[in-house]
Design a protein around this nucleic acid. Structure first.
Lengths: 191, 191
DNA sequence: AAGTTTGTTCAGTTAAAACTGTACATAATA
DNA sequence: TATTATGTACAGTTTTAACTGAACAAACTT
């Protein structure tokens, strides 16, 4: 066993500490629709002192460059990393988006708004089909079922309207008036 | 081909209309950490006139009872369906939770709070490890990296504090003061 | 208590997603 | 223009998740 005051050993300890956080990120990042592997990738780039290339990521994680490419793309789509340029470097460089509020909002907005819109269209279409059928049918039983269905769908529609409003809260940034960003408490200054 | 004013044909059209919505639900329900199959299950129970048993679900979806059991449990955990009792019926009966606002809030709160807490603990622990290492190390290079890491982690911590506050908005129901529930506009009465 | 009914556990199977290496397309360099 | 470097598409493989049927356990019925 090497002695404790050894650079390699301490670097290893630093790596371990970072790894504690990276592992947790990887576990929970599925909430952003990101795979655990891409989560580890995110963590790695997060701690990196410099923007990283695909080759560096590949080496750091012991995974194929192809995986790095698709992984970084999913992080890019979620606005969790960004591409940066440095003169003289041909390779693509990536760093984490440091505004986590923005990342969260982006993911939240995109995912929920998309789903909400699709669901609302589906409700509209379903209602159309039901209205038409109700006009044509002569069976009391059928039209009764249709009426119940339409009522349920309208209820759902109200909910989606509300959800749209909630999403707008994040989209417009009004959420930050209601729930202010936290300032760095350790720094003492509270501008 | 059977004539148009035929009960079976119109029932089929009703089924088709319902299916339009069910299919869309199934596609987007992964946002609630629910599988598409369980999503179809949800849709089926949603339109059912009566609370359903596992056997009825199994028949309606053409899937095994085991799948219905696990599917309904995931919906139950997400507070999207609830169990109801009817005298004289031994089988478990399920209906959808009709307060969609509650369902959404529940899912949102549980998923994000859990992840947030785990990530915050990880940050704490990582910081502890880093503080310790910084006290012990003599290498300027190492302690510089540590300082940068701690700064990044503190930034992340602030974000998680903010997220906790946002979650509390839904937990306490204060969100409904800010974004009021939509009333059923078609009914005309606006109490 | 014996016999049913009902939901769930578990092992095995099938289906889906993640990952890899090769081959290719594009762009930079000489 | 020829050569080299770099990221991505694609086909095949591995890993993970979903699904099923049989066996079991708990509760109800008689």
């Amino acid at each position: 066993m090497p002695s404790n005051n050894n650079y390699a050993v301490e670097s290893e300890r630093l790596e371990e500490a970072r790894n504690r956080f990276i592992t947790e990120i990887a576990k929970n990042i599925h909430l952003y629709n990101i795979t655990p592997s891409a989560g580890r990738l995110y963590g790695t780039v997060f701690f990196s002192e410099e923007p990283m290339t695909l080759d560096e990521m590949s080496k750091a994680l012991g995974m194929s460059k192809t995986s790095m490419s698709t992984g970084i793309r999913s992080l890019l789509d979620a606005n969790m990393v960004e591409r940066v340029w440095e003169r003289g470097i041909r390779k693509d460089l990536y760093k984490v988006e440091d505004d986590w509020y923005k990342s969260f909002s982006n993911v939240f907005i995109n995912r929920w708004r998309n789903a909400t819109e699709l669901n609302m269209s589906a409700i509209q279409e379903t209602k159309e089909m039901l209205y038409q059928l109700r006009q044509e049918t002569t069976f009391k039983d059928i039209s009764k079922k249709i009426d119940t269905d339409i009522e349920k769908l309208t209820e759902a529609e109200n909910y989606y309207h509300w959800l749209t409003d909630v999403i707008a809260l994040f989209e417009t940034g009004k959420i930050f008036d209601i729930v202010p960003k936290r300032r760095d408490l350790t720094k003492g200054k509270n501008i």
